[in-house]
């Protein structure tokens, strides 16, 4: 355990969060929960950008990238949720294992 916050702390935290997001993305069946896991992964990437910028503070590039990434993630969440609502309207379910409309095994 290190005594002071170093970049390693942030990298490890980011890796843990990203892995949790990946695990949820692979195992959850609810479309909304899958979207939440994507948000966790995006946040871990943002943390990485911010921490690299903290330990190389000659400019603000990392923080600006994180800011733009937050905007993009918000738009992605909105569109994803719209898709979920439309899937529920059209198919009556948002479980990813029940949506088989595009599967070619009928």
């Amino acid at each position: 355990m290190l005594n002071e916050i170093s970049i390693n702390h942030c990298l490890i935290l980011s890796g843990i969060l990203f892995s949790i997001g990946v695990a949820g993305f692979l195992t959850r069946r609810n479309l909304i929960a899958v979207l939440m896991c994507i948000e966790i992964m995006l946040n871990s990437a943002n943390l990485l950008l911010v921490s690299y910028n903290r330990f190389n503070p000659s400019n603000h590039a990392g923080q600006i990238f994180a800011l733009l990434s937050i905007v993009i993630a918000a738009g992605e969440a909105a569109i994803g949720l719209v898709i979920a609502i439309n899937a529920f309207r059209l198919l009556g379910t948002i479980r990813t294992d029940e949506i088989k409309e595009m599967k070619d095994d009928a």
Partner: peptide, 30 residues
């Protein structure tokens, strides 16, 4: 803690305030 004060505020406003509430509304709708 990482000296990204503006980003912390944006994170609370956009994510904790906006995105989460959006998720909650959609969950209530579905």
């Amino acid at each position: 803690l990482l000296h990204a004060h503006l980003l912390a505020v944006v994170q609370i406003l956009v994510y904790a305030g906006g995105v989460t509430v959006l998720f909650a509304f959609v969950i209530l709708m579905i």
